[in-house]
């Protein structure tokens, strides 16, 4: 990885512990700008935790995060976030359009209400995800895939440089999955950086160009072709936990 380019996301030695159990151990990752990067690893590998600690939603026990070379708290405007669909109550009394407009709230600032401009931006975003017809639907009446599209539209309307998506393909139909991938790729073409928690190894190479293999610690990170090798994948998924760094490679763990 070139040292001259300022990485879009730089994670420096992040360790996160819940009570006394470490969830992430000394994770060190750099994501160059303009890549579409997957975070893969077994359940409990800390994928969501990594995303949340990069976004500052979880306080790490140690380590730092930089977005475009600056601490994340000063770079909020550059960040778009798609949380896990299951993290909210979809019975909330609001419409798809309204949820998308929430993406503009931070930009709007205190005391100002979303107006015509926000409405137009939100409609454009809904159009990009193919949801114009559902703008005024109450969100619980949408299918899982449609809900995911609404969440994506909300991130699109944030018009960010760096996007974080937590399992955007969980529980969605094939059409939606393809549509989301197309949008992610389009964003990458326009120079955006994307970090996506992903579950399905079979589509890894097709959807993403970079990958981070994570299992409590970062096993490897880099272009999919060179990184998602059978050996490294086996290390990521073999057993509950990881192998120790390079010099101990090959030593199997339960």
């Amino acid at each position: 990885m070139s040292r001259h380019v300022i990485p879009a996301i730089k994670v420096e030695d992040i360790t996160v512990a819940y009570r006394e159990t470490p969830v992430l151990w000394d994770v060190d990752v750099e994501v160059p700008p303009g890549v579409l990067m997957a975070v893969v690893g077994p359940n409990g590998a800390g994928k969501t935790t990594l995303l949340k600690s990069i976004l500052g939603l979880i306080r790490p026990a140690a380590g730092r995060v930089f977005i475009n070379g600056k601490p994340v708290n000063r770079q909020r405007r550059l960040i778009g976030y798609v949380p896990q669909r299951s993290s909210v109550d979809w019975d909330f009394p609001t419409t798809a359009l309204d949820v998308v407009m929430m993406g503009r709230y931070a930009e709007l600032g205190w005391f100002r209400r979303p107006g015509k401009k926000e409405r137009e931006l939100a409609m454009q975003a809904l159009e990009r995800v193919g949801m114009t017809d559902f703008a005024n639907r109450q969100i619980s009446q949408l299918s899982g895939g449609q809900q995911q599209r609404v969440f994506l539209a909300r991130a699109l309307v944030q018009d960010s440089e760096i996007y974080f998506l937590d399992e955007p393909f969980a529980g969605v139909d094939v059409t939606t999955e393809k549509a989301i991938v197309a949008i992610l790729k389009e964003l990458r073409e326009r120079g955006r950086t994307l970090l996506v928690v992903h579950h399905d190894l079979s589509t890894l190479a097709e959807y993403f160009d970079w990958v981070l293999l994570l299992n409590v610690r970062a096993i490897a990170a880099g272009p999919v072709v060179t990184t998602a090798t059978p050996e490294l994948l086996a290390r990521t998924y073999g057993g509950r936990s990881a192998y120790l760094g390079g010099n101990q490679a090959g030593e199997k763990v339960q």
């Binding site: 949340k52 976004l55 500052g56 939603l57 708290n73 909020r76 405007r77 960040i79 976030y81 949380p83 993290s87 909210v88 109550d89 909330f92 609001t94 949820v99 929430m102 709230y105 931070a106 909300r154 944030q158 974080f164």
Partner: peptide
């Protein structure tokens, strides 16, 4: 009330 995590991620 709807999505506290997203709210926090935008810096609110």
């Amino acid at each position: 009330s709807f999505d506290p995590q997203f709210a926090a991620s935008t810096g609110l």
